[in-house]
Amino acid sequence: MHLEPHHHVGRRARHARCHREVRSRGALRVSRLKDLPPGVARVLWLGATLFWAVQLSLYLLGGLSLLDTILLATLLIAIPALAIAQVPLAQEALIERLPAYWSSIATLWVLGTISWLVGTRTEGLAAIGLTLLPPVPFIAWTLGLTAAGLGIIVVFRQVALGLRVRESPLLRSLLPRTAEERGVFAILSLAAGVGEEVAYRGYAIPVLIPVVGSVGALLLTSAVFGVLHVYQGTLGIFRTAVMGATLAGGFLLSGSLLPAIIAHTAIDLLAGILIADKLLLPLNSHGVGGVDETLQES
């Protein structure tokens, strides 16, 4: 009987301690949000401002529908801003490749699906370039775009070696090293080939052409495509921008997005799994030297 009051006192004390701990953890979370690197916070604020500015401009001046302006502003401003903001945070974190792959796969499929649904809502699959070509042109465009993409990587590698530019360590850390990682990376390559091509070529270019013209749409989407790969460093931004322009040119000239989708997937598979050590710059001093051993794990 006499233990009952002490028992309640003990419970009140424990509740008080728990309450203080919860408040402490909450304050810690708020503190962490406030302690975002200044550059990251500025990028997010600028991205939010530009998002609404671009969305309203496209709606009021470009004559586009509200749905198209929101999706375009998301593709052209919001997603690149998030990509830029993530880089300094990722550089300070331990990269876990498999979770990164799966989260990227989910994001790309969602992005591609939304672009697919919005882009085809009035004119069907032809509106985003999902049309068949005769066999010979289809094979020619697919092989040509794949070869051109790999050639771009080789050219940038040689130029970078001459300029003594180093490959991004973050890019190297994200490349697959085990059999399981290579399997998931193959799925990621397919998701990127479909999702990015549908969103940034099949959807964005036709919608932007009435506003900025064919050349303007090609240049704008390719520049944004380069910024999306900011984790690859300055070299990677220009490399992927040129590759994006090549794929966009193939889409516009052939009239079909399918060769670009297959070429994009093949380039990612080849450059990320099979011949990464031969296409990318080595990590040692000034980007000159032998093969990076981290890619040789089984």
Rank of each mutant, 00 (worst) to 15 (best):
N284H: 11
H7V: 00
L235N: 13
A276E: 08
G255N: 10
S222D: 00
L145W: 03
R42E: 02
L219R: 08
G62F: 10
A223P: 01
A83P: 09
L58Q: 11
P80D: 00
I153Y: 08
R166Y: 04
G236Y: 08
L257T: 12
T265I: 00
P37L: 05
R166S: 10
A53C: 15
L161P: 00
E197L: 15
G183A: 00
N284Y: 10
I275Y: 08
L252T: 10
V211A: 15
A140W: 04
V291E: 00
K278W: 01
A160F: 06
R20C: 02
L3I: 01
L56E: 05
G10E: 10
R201A: 02
G272N: 14
W45C: 13
S104Y: 00
L150K: 11
A186E: 04
R12E: 12
A148Y: 00
A78R: 12
L252K: 15
S57P: 11
E196F: 06
I95Q: 12
L281V: 00
S65L: 05
P134L: 02
L64E: 14
L280I: 00
L220Q: 08
V154Q: 00
P137S: 04
A127R: 14
R239P: 03
Q232P: 08
G129Q: 11
P206M: 05
V43R: 14
A271C: 08
G162P: 03
H2Y: 02
G290K: 15
A263E: 07
P210T: 01
L281H: 05
V198A: 06
V212C: 09
V87T: 04
W141K: 13
I267Q: 10
I209T: 13
R11S: 05
T240E: 03
L111A: 08
L208D: 11
G272I: 01
H6D: 14
D292N: 11
V288G: 08
L71H: 12
L58M: 15
A126Q: 02
R42N: 13
Q55E: 04
M1W: 05
V155F: 07
A148P: 01
S31H: 05
V110W: 05
S103A: 03
A48T: 06
F238G: 09
P135K: 09
M1R: 05
N284W: 07
E197K: 15
V40K: 15
L44P: 15
G162S: 04
A179T: 14
A16Q: 04
S222N: 06
L163R: 15
L235M: 12
H264K: 13
Q296T: 07
T74V: 12
V30E: 09
L190F: 01
I77G: 07
W45Q: 13
I79Y: 11
V224T: 02
L150T: 06
D292H: 06
G26F: 14
V242S: 13
E92K: 15
P37C: 07
R11D: 09
I153L: 12
H8I: 03
A217D: 03
P259Y: 01
R29Q: 03
F156K: 11
W52H: 14
S256Y: 00
L295M: 13
S222A: 11
A199M: 10
V230L: 12
I95D: 06
L219H: 03
I209P: 02
I273S: 11
L133G: 05
W45L: 14
